[in-house]
């Protein structure tokens, strides 16, 4: 099924077209969400929300970009929204623990292990994901799309609605910040 046929089917509410879309993109959407959220269950929830959003707003898709670019964009937006809401809850959780009976933080982040990382690199990758979590949103997104989803600068530029040189700059800054944060970690 070509992209045009897929779009035609989706716009006419054909279930077979929707199933084909999900089959074609579910791994890409899930992998991107997982890289950004670093949590399996949350990544699955967000991936489902992405496809629901695609199903509901397919009539608004003008075809100015590739379908994959549009879906990646929705995935990034939804993942970042989720992270922001999680951070708000985290702050609230911290306050609750301050005023609660015990001083145990309610949200203790666990080490994230991406299932696709080579066995011998798992420990290092877990440390890297921890510091990726500290990057600003745009640097983190560019880094994950490039390193985890293996997208080209051109694809990332299309998703983030920017230029390839801006993506290059984001990635350089991300790497610099990651090194800096790894250096700053206490022994």
């Amino acid at each position: 099924m070509t992209e045009q046929e897929l779009l035609f089917g989706l716009r006419h509410g054909e279930e077979s077209a929707f199933k084909e879309l999900v089959t074609r993109f579910q791994d890409k959407v899930f992998n991107t969400a997982l890289g950004l959220l670093q949590h399996h269950t949350e990544a699955e929830d967000i991936a489902q929300e992405v496809f629901i959003q695609v199903y509901r707003s397919i009539q608004n898709f003008k075809g100015e970009s590739l379908l994959s670019t549009w879906i990646y964009r929705i995935t990034v937006t939804k993942s970042l929204d989720h992270l922001r809401s999680k951070k708000r809850k985290k702050r609230f959780g911290f306050l609750s623990s301050l005023f609660g009976d015990n001083n145990i933080p309610l949200y203790e982040p666990e080490d994230f292990n991406h299932p696709g990382v080579l066995q011998e690199k798992k420990e290092d990758a877990a440390i890297l994901f921890k510091v990726i979590d500290l990057l600003p949103e745009n640097q983190r997104t560019a880094f994950i799309l490039n390193k985890v989803e293996d997208l080209s600068y051109r694809e990332i530029a299309a998703i983030l609605n920017t230029t390839e040189s801006a993506v290059d700059s984001l990635l350089q800054r991300a790497k610099g910040n990651l090194r800096k944060k790894l250096n700053e970690l206490p022994p």
């Binding site: 999900v22 579910q26 791994d27 890409k28 959407v29 899930f30 992998n31 997982l34 399996h40 990544a43 699955e44 991936a47 489902q48 991406h114 299932p115 696709g116 990382v117 080579l118 690199k121 290092d124 990758a125 440390i127 890297l128 390193k147 985890v148 989803e149 293996d150 790497k175 990651l178 090194r179 790894l182």
Partner: peptide, 17 residues
Amino acid sequence: IMTSLGGIQPAVAPDFF
């Protein structure tokens, strides 16, 4: 650590997605 994501395989969506 910086090169630990080299050779990473994409994660696959869970069964019955």
